[in-house]
Simulated scan of single mutants.
Amino acid sequence: MIRQCSLLAGYSCLVFSLLFPASAAWYQDKQGIMGTNIQVEVWSDDVQQGQQATQAVMAEMERINQLMSPYIANSELAIVNQHAAEHPVKVSKELFDLVALSIEISKETQGAFDITFASVGYLYDYRQQHKPADEQIKSLLAAINFRHLVLDEQQYSIFFSHPKVKIDLGGIAKGQAVDNAIAILQNLHIKHALVTAGGDTRLLGDRRGKPWMVGIRDPRHPDKQAVVLPLIDTALSTSGDYERYFEQDGQRYHHILSPKSGTSSYEVQSVSIIGPRSVLNDALSTAVFVLGVQQGMDLLNRTLGYDGIIMDNQRRMHYSTGLAKP
């Protein structure tokens, strides 16, 4: 590192140069993948390592997208949706394990989190502002039940025991991708990093001596933060009724559907979960959103290591017992 130093300041400048090489910096990238905004920020002392780290994160996001997107015709998930009602479909261990985890979370949340919501959910088109007719929803409600998913651990296969079942991992796959990305960064010896996929953020270490300041968006004011949290080496996921929605006849139709009704849940506007694993934060934020304030808080308060903040439909904030009000 070449620096212009005065004689008196030379010693300090030399020490600074030794501690912080020329290439020591934050390396960042942002891309649109998995239908959302992906952001990575890493600290590295080396240009090659920093660039390799950000590229590796984006590559992992795209790999998960190609594996688990229901909108990519040749993805494993799309093939399962096409054929699993006809016969068991063999899948990769990675997809099998994530579906198995989803089923376990469904059991723990009394079905509030259920990847078979897509049996009705696929009929919604938020870009085209289209919702299914009530008759369509009612005719498919019986297909929303995680118990219709029959898994064979020996064959790594998935079978649908109901002919109308579809699955969607949108409430858990991004969390999985974020966890994978952090593991990749750790293997590259990165010590300080942030990875965000939509509402899912995980932090590696601190921000070089300071906590990461992570904001939770105000659901009705996109340019404002409802809460800003100082966080270190943890993860936060937010589910909100503003992520994918449209308004029609004074009603907001958003993507977080109740598995019981096949329609949007309205008791809360957003749920944020803080915990060590993004994959669980992601699923829990959806489950708590569907459960509502009382049942959602009951779930959080009995889930060791995970806390949450709920903004209800009256814009009141609710905090789990492990969190102090700011």
Rank of each mutant, 00 (worst) to 15 (best):
V89W: 05
G111W: 05
E104V: 08
K90A: 13
E108D: 15
Q110K: 09
Q110F: 01
S92N: 08
V89C: 07
I105T: 12
S106N: 05
E94L: 11
E86C: 12
S106I: 06
E108L: 14
F96R: 12
V120M: 01
F117R: 04
E94A: 13
S92W: 02
D114N: 04
T109M: 06
E94T: 13
I103L: 15
Y122F: 07
Q129V: 11
Y126L: 04
V91A: 06
T116F: 06
Q110S: 07
I115W: 06
I115L: 03
F113L: 04
S106C: 13
P132K: 08
I115S: 01
A112M: 04
I103S: 13
A118G: 00
G111T: 09
E108T: 15
Q129P: 08
L101T: 15
L95I: 14
I115Q: 00
S119A: 04
A133I: 05
E86Y: 13
D125H: 08
D97G: 06
P88N: 13
S102V: 09
P88R: 09
K93I: 07
L98C: 09
K93A: 15
I105A: 12
F113T: 07
V99E: 04
A118T: 07
A118R: 01
V120Y: 00
F113E: 00
T109V: 12
K107M: 10
K93C: 09
E108F: 08
E86D: 12
K93H: 10
I105M: 11
V91R: 05
E86L: 15
G111R: 01
A112T: 05
S119P: 01
H87K: 13
A133W: 06
H130W: 01
Q129A: 14
F117K: 10
Q110V: 03
E86A: 09
E108V: 03
H130A: 05
D114I: 03
I103R: 15
L98A: 03
S92D: 10
V120I: 11
R127T: 08
Y122Q: 05
A112D: 07
G121Q: 00
Q110M: 03
S119G: 08
Y124A: 01
T116Y: 00
A118V: 02
D97T: 14
G121E: 00
I115K: 04
E94Q: 10
A100P: 03
K107G: 07
S106V: 05
F117G: 06
L98Q: 14
Y122W: 02
H130G: 02
L101C: 09
S92V: 13
I103M: 15
A118Q: 04
H87V: 10
H87L: 09
T109F: 00
K93L: 15
V120K: 01
L101F: 10
S119R: 02
F117C: 05
P88Y: 06
Y124C: 05
S102C: 12
K93G: 10
R127C: 13
P132C: 12
Y126S: 00
